[in-house]
C-alpha cells in the first residue's frame, strides 16, 4: 500500500472551515481523483497527503505510520507534489533536469540516457533545450512532471494539473499519467484534483467528492450509480425549446434542477439510460447536449 489515512481532520479556526475525510487509500498503480467545488477542501486534502500540511488523523506512507519523529526529508524524497502554481525554473530546462538527476544520485554516465527516456516518454525531447519562459503552460506542467519522475516517486500528488490546459493537452497529460503507472520498475500511485470531471473520472480508479470539507462520496465511479435508484441526465436543448421541455418534465413528474443553461433530470431506473434521449427526440426537441451523469460525481454537485 502506498498511502492510507484515517480520520483526517484539518481545521482553520479563523474561517471555521473544517476538512473531514474518514479514510483514503492509495494502492499501487491506482489513480484517485479528488473533486468538489472551489473552496471545499481539495487543495487542503492534497497538501495533507503530500506532507505539506499538518492535520490530525492517522497517516501511513509506504507501510509506515507517521509519528512525531518521522523523517519527513526521507519520506518526501518518495513523494512528488506538483502544486497548482509551479515555481519558475531558471536556466535551460535540460539543465534543471540534469541538476535534479545529479542531486537524486543518478550516476553521471546514466543520467543523459535516463533523462532522454523520460523526455521521450512525455514527448518533450524537442523542447529540452528551451527555457521556462519559452514553453506553454501545458509543457511546463509536463516538464515539472518529468522533473518529479526523475526520483522515481512512489506517490504523485497533483493539484489541479488540468487547469489552464486545452482539451488535447489534458488528454495527453492524463494518458501520460496512465503510462507512468504502467511502468512496473517502481510502484506508484497518483492522487489528483480537478474540475474536469469527465476527464478525471475517465482515468481514476477511485473518486473522492468533497463538499464543505466533508467527503460526501469516496469510491469507484461505478459505486456511485449503485447507491441510487435513478438515472441522472444533463440536458441542454435549443433556447426556443427550453420552456416546452420544462412543461414536458413537469407533465411527466420528472425531478429536475437547473445549472445555468443545463438541466439535470432524474428518472427512475425503469428502462435503459437511452430511453430518455429517445423520448426527447420523439417529442421533437433539438438536443444540443446530453450526458448521462448517473456514474459521475457531477450528479453530486447539485444535491
Amino acid at each position: 500500500m502506498i498511502f492510507t489515512a484515517t480520520n483526517i481532520v484539518k481545521q482553520y479556526p479563523r474561517s471555521k472551515f473544517q476538512l473531514q475525510v474518514p479514510n483514503i487509500t492509495l494502492s499501487e498503480g491506482a489513480i484517485v481523483g479528488v473533486v468538489g467545488e472551489n473552496g471545499n477542501g481539495k487543495t487542503t486534502l492534497l497538501n495533507i497527503v503530500a506532507g505539506e500540511l499538518e492535520a490530525s488523523g492517522s497517516l501511513n506512507y509506504f507501510g509506515e505510520e507517521v509519528k512525531q519523529d518521522t523523517d519527513w526529508s526521507a519520506l518526501k524524497s518518495k513523494i512528488a507534489f506538483i502544486p497548482q502554481r509551479i515555481p519558475r525554473w531558471y536556466g535551460s530546462l535540460i539543465q534543471n533536469l540534469k541538476l535534479k538527476a545529479a542531486l537524486d544520485g543518478i550516476p553521471a554516465e546514466e543520467s543523459d540516457a535516463y533523462l532522454d527516456e523520460i523526455l521521450s516518454f512525455l514527448g518533450l525531447m524537442d523542447y529540452k533545450h528551451l527555457k521556462w519562459t519559452e514553453i506553454s503552460t501545458g509543457y511546463r506542467l509536463r516538464f515539472e512532471l518529468a522533473r518529479m519522475l526523475i526520483g522515481k516517486p512512489n506517490l504523485l500528488v497533483l493539484d489541479e494539473p488540468l487547469a489552464n490546459l486545452d482539451i488535447n493537452t489534458q488528454q495527453k497529460f492524463l494518458s501520460d499519467l496512465k503510462n507512468i503507472l504502467q511502468d512496473k520498475s517502481y510502484s506508484t500511485a497518483v492522487i489528483l484534483s480537478s474540475q474536469q470531471l469527465h476527464e478525471i473520472e475517465t482515468v481514476s480508479d477511485h473518486m473522492i467528492f468533497l463538499r464543505k470539507g466533508e467527503s460526501v462520496f469516496s469510491g469507484a465511479v461505478n459505486e456511485l450509480e449503485a447507491d441510487h435508484d435513478q438515472f441522472v441526465f444533463e440536458v441542454q436543448v435549443e433556447a426556443a425549446d427550453k420552456a416546452r421541455l420544462l412543461t414536458y418534465l413537469q407533465a411527466n413528474n420528472l425531478t429536475y434542477g437547473a445549472t445555468g443553461e443545463y438541466l439535470q433530470v432524474s428518472i427512475d431506473k425503469t428502462g435503459t439510460s437511452n430511453d430518455f434521449l429517445s423520448d426527447l427526440i420523439k417529442e421533437g426537441f433539438t438536443v444540443k447536449y446530453y450526458r448521462n451523469i448517473s456514474k459521475s460525481t457531477k450528479r453530486l454537485f447539485n444535491q
Binding site: 539543465q95 540534469k98 541538476l99 538527476a101 545529479a102 542531486l103 553521471a108 543520467s111
Partner: peptide, 14 residues
C-alpha cells in the same frame, strides 16, 4: 560545466 553539473551538482550550483 556539464561535468560538474552531473558529477558534483552542489559545486555546480555554487
Amino acid at each position: 560545466d556539464h561535468h560538474l553539473l552531473q558529477k558534483y551538482p552542489n559545486l555546480w550550483v555554487l
